[in-house]
Structures are given as structure tokens and as C-alpha cells.
Design a binder for these strands. Structure first.
Lengths: 195, 195
DNA sequence: ACCGTATCTGAACGTCTGTTCAGATAGAAC
DNA sequence: GTTCTATCTGAACAGACGTTCAGATACGGT
């Protein structure tokens, strides 16, 4: 008989995380109940509270860890001096990183309004940190004469918005390979910031 | 004494629509209760059911009417033969139309997953209709040699994603005027599709 | 002045919500 | 083989949910 009680902390913890992630992404935070998450894990609802103080923290941790992973992964890359090359690297990194974590990405910007205001402020700060990395590239390229940008703040947001669009339609095994998609976006991004 | 019963159909109907729109946009469909909507209107929850068969229909009608308005408004414009000019017109139209209706726009793409599958299919069809208008412009310009686009399907989605980014940060009375924003986006969009 | 009807109230329905907790259980430690 | 403790169950909590409906009310038409 399968064990239903006893010591499972190292198994149940991650499974709760995964179940919450998948369910929040598919149905939205507000539409998912603690009992649904528990059922997905194969446990009663009360057991979840050994792993999270409440539902809100469950959401916050998913978003917080995602943003930290994103920033850490980007920082881990080799940094180039050449602005155009750095931009190309950013485009490739952004597309590949985000396509590997569709659920986290979806939650990280659909569920912002379900965060308490303290939690919201923390996530927003991390997002700005990441966006600043891109803006630094654009500014540097602009100063060096490699780019021709009217407003680096707008350009930053426009480029990120454009790249985020990939998530809404790209599916592995579709008409285009990841390399082709990356190349197409790089072309458009590069052109949009050069004269 | 204010009337609390009697004939108000022409007043209450629109007010329910407005209240639902504002609340869904701010807190999300699943997080808003019929009682909250009713309270905003100044009425009991049961009274809402004189105007909508259920909560789901309330959401669907908001989205459906928004998409129809969008398509009709775009069709109402003068159509140009010149592809570059048509693209410029599209960019300006898209930015201005969407910035005038932030709540509708927000709902129309945040709440897709809360639609029943029939309702979802209808909204998606309307969205594709609108996107096809842009793709037609890109294809025409590509054929005429005005544009240099690797994949018009990707370019369509990339341009719309970029433009939709405006909604997340633009606020009237901010650092930039609407004209400046429109100009900046037009520059970037135009460059991204020309060699 | 009265009636008919559109509109709204207020209560009720069954079900679901997040969260708590005493008690049961199974693996780890000795 | 016994004890200890981390983990889970199962029931309970007070309140909120979408929806229904009989009865009250006030306007429009006559």
C-alpha cells in the first residue's frame, strides 16, 4: 500500500510548487483553489500549509524565484563590449530563457495584480533590474554611434514587448525552428534601433 | 427620496457594464463577485440578472463588443494604396484606439482563459481578423518592394506585440506626448520592416 | 384613479472558499 | 522494539460564491 503519511517533505514540497505553477498558469491564481492544488499532488488541502503560510505566498514565491533566476542567468553570460553584439546576445537569451519556462513567464505578468502591495513592489523592482540591463546596452550603443534611438526608455520597453510576443504563439515543433525565430527577431530588433 | 424600484433599464444596463468593466480590469474576472458589481451600481446582486443571464456572458459581451468596435473603427478609416503609408496609419490607429480604452484592452487579453471554449473561439476569430489587416499591409509592401520582411506572419505578431507594449506604461500627461510616442513607435516599426 | 408591468429587494439555496487543528500514522534514531 | 517527530488526514470554521425567486414597489399607459 502506498504511504499516505510519514516523511515526504523533500518530495511533496517540489510537487506542490509544480502543481501550483501549472494550475495558476492555466486557470489563473484567483480561479484555482487550494483543494485543487492538493488534489493534483495527491494530498489533502491542510497538508499544503506545512509548506506555505498561505495561498498568496505560494504565488509570490513562484514569481520571485522566477525573476531571480532570470537575472542570475543573464548575469552568468559572458559580457561583450560591443553594443550590437550585446544586443544580439540579449535577444537570443531572452527568447530562449522565456520559451523554456512558459508557465513562470505567464504567471509573472498575468498575476501581478493578485500580489499584495509589498510583494508587488519587490517583483517590480526585479523586473526593472532586468530591463535596465537592456537599456544600458541601448544607451551604450547610442553613445558609441552604433545605434540611432530617439528615446532609449521607449526603445527598451518596445524591444521587450516585441520579444515577449514570441511566447504567445511559438510552439516547439511548429513551422519555424528556434534558430529561425531568433534570427527573425534579431533582424527586426536590430533594424528598429539602427538608422 | 431616491427611487429604489421601478423603471431604470436604460440607466442600470450601462452602469452594470461600466462597473463590470472597471472591476474586471482592476482585479480580474475570477476575483470579482456579482455582489461587488451590484454594490458599485448601487443595487442588489439579484438585479443584475435582469441584464445578463450569468457572469460569463457579462465578460463575453465586454470582449465581443470591444473587438467589434476595434474592427469597425479600423474599417472606417480611409484606406491608402501605399503600403508604407498604410502601415503608418495602422500604427497610429492602433496606439490611439487602444490607449482610449485601456480597460477593454486589458480584459480582452487577460481574460481569454476565463471564456468558455465557444466564446473563446469567437473572440479569437475577431482577433485574427484584425491581425490579418496588418498582415495584408505587410504582404503588399513586401510584394511591392517597399518592405524587406523574412516572414510576414512573425512580423505581424512582432509589430502588434511591440505596439501593445505602449499600454503597459503610457500615461496621459507623462513625459511624452501622444504624438511623440506615436512618432517613436512608427520609426521603430518602419525600420524593423525595411532594409 | 386605477391597472399592468418592468424593475428591484431580500432572503434563501447548495456549494465552495482559505485556513486551522486535534488526532492518526509511518519512518528515523537509539 | 520503543520512542520521537515530521507529515498527513479529516473534520470543522465562518464566510463568500453564483444564481433563483416570491413579493414589494413605482413608473407608463389608459
Amino acid at each position: 500500500m502506498a504511504r499516505t503519511q510519514g516523511s515526504h517533505s523533500d518530495i511533496t514540497g517540489p510537487r506542490i510548487r509544480e502543481a501550483a505553477l501549472a494550475l495558476f498558469a492555466r486557470h489563473g491564481y484567483a480561479a484555482v483553489s487550494m483543494r485543487q492544488i492538493a488534489a493534483e499532488v495527491g494530498v489533502q488541502a491542510g497538508a499544503l500549509y506545512n509548506y506555505t503560510p498561505d495561498k498568496q505566498s505560494l504565488l509570490f514565491r513562484l514569481m520571485y524565484e522566477h525573476m531571480q533566476d532570470l537575472i542570475a542567468a543573464y548575469a552568468d553570460q559572458d559580457q561583450t563590449e560591443d553594443a550590437a553584439e550585446a544586443l544580439r546576445q540579449f535577444v537570443g537569451f531572452h527568447i530562449r530563457f522565456h520559451l523554456q519556462r512558459p508557465d513562470e513567464v505567464f504567471i509573472a505578468y498575468m498575476e501581478l495584480r493578485n500580489l499584495s502591495s509589498d510583494n508587488f513592489a519587490q517583483i517590480e523592482a526585479l523586473r526593472r533590474t532586468y530591463e535596465n540591463a537592456l537599456e544600458a546596452i541601448l544607451r551604450k550603443g547610442q553613445a558609441a554611434g552604433a545605434f540611432d534611438i530617439a528615446d532609449t526608455k521607449i526603445a527598451t520597453l518596445a524591444v521587450i514587448a516585441m520579444l515577449n510576443g514570441v511566447m504567445t504563439w511559438y510552439r516547439a515543433g511548429g513551422r519555424l525552428s528556434l534558430d529561425e525565430v531568433e534570427q527573425a527577431y534579431w533582424d527586426m530588433v536590430h533594424r528598429s534601433v539602427t538608422a
